[in-house]
Design a protein around this nucleic acid. Structure first.
Length: 241
DNA sequence: ATCGGTACCTGCACGC
DNA sequence: TGCGTGCAGGTACCGA
């Protein structure tokens, strides 16, 4: 491949050195680590991509105002486009420490390990679900949707949950993620896959960005509060501390 | 080690 | 038509 970069914000490291390090490499595979994408290259190198809020990797897409990287491959081009520039690109040897430090995959973690990790945390449930060292890959939408399905208040203290409620949350996380993946994700305003296609799970959101609308279970108006500086949506009647 | 708060960006919808 | 405000799929970094 060959690579060119525009702007300095999204790229970690020197643009020239990164382009030189990528030149002539072959892509061996692509793996996901929570929200980090690892493009495995030959020579024990990896190109690490995090999409942030508005990042997109697009295969054979049209470059635009917010295109920060163009990777030219044998079979087409891969663009990195990101209007808010919260995403990051990095050429590294192996996995960076912050990627290795991620918590377990939510679709793989056992109920026992989940419960044990939960008991060690004093923070609010919503903040904990957003913490990538607790579980990798859960973001603001799926944190709110999972807590709603489990009937747990976003301000509930993690360590105080027990038994049945932990089991419900473990199941709710798995269900909401599995359904969202099957639906191609949630496209609110920006998200598209590598072929530019939108997901459809947003039409099945129960609480996320539904402030004031009736709860689908009990009809009470959905409330919005801030937890860990993030908009948090929940049903004040169905979700208990 | 863990926590909460702040900084980093652009774009859009809204009210005046 | 502008202009100010608030909001948005996230993480890194800082001090307590």
């Amino acid at each position: 491949m060959s690579a060119e970069f525009h702007g300095l914000r999204v790229l970690r490291g020197d643009p020239e050195a990164t382009a030189a390090g990528l030149a002539g490499r072959r892509v061996r595979g692509v793996r996901r680590h929570g929200k980090f994408i690892e493009i495995e290259l030959d020579g024990e190198r990896s190109f690490i991509v995090h999409l942030g809020m508005t990042g997109k990797l697009l295969l054979n897409g049209a470059p635009g105002k917010h295109t920060h990287a163009i990777l030219t491959l044998d079979r087409g081009t891969l663009l990195y486009d990101d209007s808010r520039q919260f995403g990051r690109l990095e050429l590294s040897s192996g996995l960076p420490a912050r990627v290795q430090a991620l918590g377990p995959e939510p679709l793989e973690v056992t109920l026992g390990e989940f419960a044990e990790r939960l008991h060690r945390r004093k923070t609010k449930m919503k903040a904990l679900l957003l913490n990538q060292k607790f579980l990798r890959g859960i973001g603001n939408i799926y944190a709110d949707e999972a807590l709603f399905r489990a009937g747990i208040h976003p301000l509930a203290t993690a360590a105080r949950l027990k038994g049945e409620r932990i089991r419900k949350l473990h199941a709710a996380i798995r269900e909401v993620l599995a359904e969202a993946i099957a639906a191609g994700g949630s496209s609110i305003s920006d998200y598209v896959d590598v072929d530019g296609r939108q997901g459809s799970f947003q039409v099945r959101h129960n609480v996320y960005q539904k402030t004031g609308e009736p709860c689908p279970r009990c009809g009470a108006p959905i409330r919005r509060i801030l937890v860990a500086q993030r908009g948090t949506h929940f049903c004040p009647k169905c979700q208990k501390k």
